[in-house]
């Protein structure tokens, strides 16, 4: 047996060999810090690819049913609250903007800026969820949540709903077609719900990142977690940027 092997060779001793690579976050199994960083962001991109496939299943279902039940999808889509959706779009883009600034702050090692940016990202993220709550509440009141309480009244008799001008102007749907709005709303809740779930997970991670950023973990040159989280957060933004036009805008008429 080679002598090099028989000498005890512990973890710690091994880590010592790489002492010139100074960061405490450097994992011993990576040769260089560069390699670690590249691996991290490559892994994140792959994970996002997975996420695309995950949402892809629902987008596929959406396209299929939209094709089949176009009038129901148009009517139901027009019932969605565009001002709220638009507000949320702006909120989410702002949140993404602050996240990007956060990544920058981490790169230039400004601890205070980083913490503030992450806080702002969190606040805007929460604001998005808040608006979403009111939207869901509205759907609940209108019995647009799929299930036993679902009601097609608004689509069969839009003339009874003068307080909803977009719907009021719609042509009434035949009851058989109006039933299909349930599928739209199911997909709406499934897609925006899954998106919201991603936001909630993201906010949880943000809190953790803020605590660590406050400790100064990410302003000493170790930016990978912030960068990778930034990728995730932007991905969540981008999903919304597909959801908003597909669910809310696609059937809007020009202003009456």
């Amino acid at each position: 047996m080679d002598s090099a092997l028989t000498t005890p060779h512990t973890h710690e001793a091994h880590a010592h060999e790489h002492e010139h690579i100074s960061l405490p976050q450097h994992r011993h199994h990576f040769e260089t810090e560069e390699q670690q960083r590249e691996a991290g962001s490559f892994g994140m991109w792959l994970f996002l690819l997975t996420e695309i496939m995950f949402f892809g299943g629902m987008f596929f279902a959406y396209l299929l049913y939209r094709n089949w039940y176009y009038p129901a999808f148009a009517a139901a889509s027009n019932q969605l609250n565009v001002p709220m959706g638009a507000t949320n779009t702006v909120i989410l883009i702002s949140s993404g903007f602050f996240m990007a600034l956060g990544v920058w702050a981490s790169e230039v090692r400004k601890k205070k800026t980083l913490v503030i940016m992450l806080l702002l990202t969190t606040i805007f993220g929460c604001a998005f969820l808040g608006v979403k709550y009111f939207e869901y509440k509205e759907k609940y009141e209108l019995h647009h949540i799929p299930g036993n309480n679902f009601s097609i009244a608004m689509f069969v008799n839009p003339q009874n709903y003068p307080q909803y001008p977009d719907t009021y102007a719609e042509k009434p749907l035949a009851p058989d077609m109006a039933q299909k709005t349930q599928i739209f709303f199911f997909l709406y809740f499934a897609m925006t719900g899954m998106h919201a779930l991603h936001m909630i997970i993201g906010i949880g991670l943000l809190v953790w990142l803020i605590i660590r950023a406050q400790r100064g973990d990410f302003t000493n040159g170790y930016v990978a977690p912030i960068e990778n989280f930034g990728l995730y957060w932007h991905f969540v933004d981008i999903v919304w940027l597909f959801l908003f036009p597909l669910l809310y805008l696609i059937n809007r008429h020009p202003l009456h």
Binding site: Y69, P71, L173, A174, D176, M177
Partner: peptide, 8 residues
Amino acid sequence: DAILNPSQ
């Protein structure tokens, strides 16, 4: 289909 989903 026409009996079940006439509006289409």
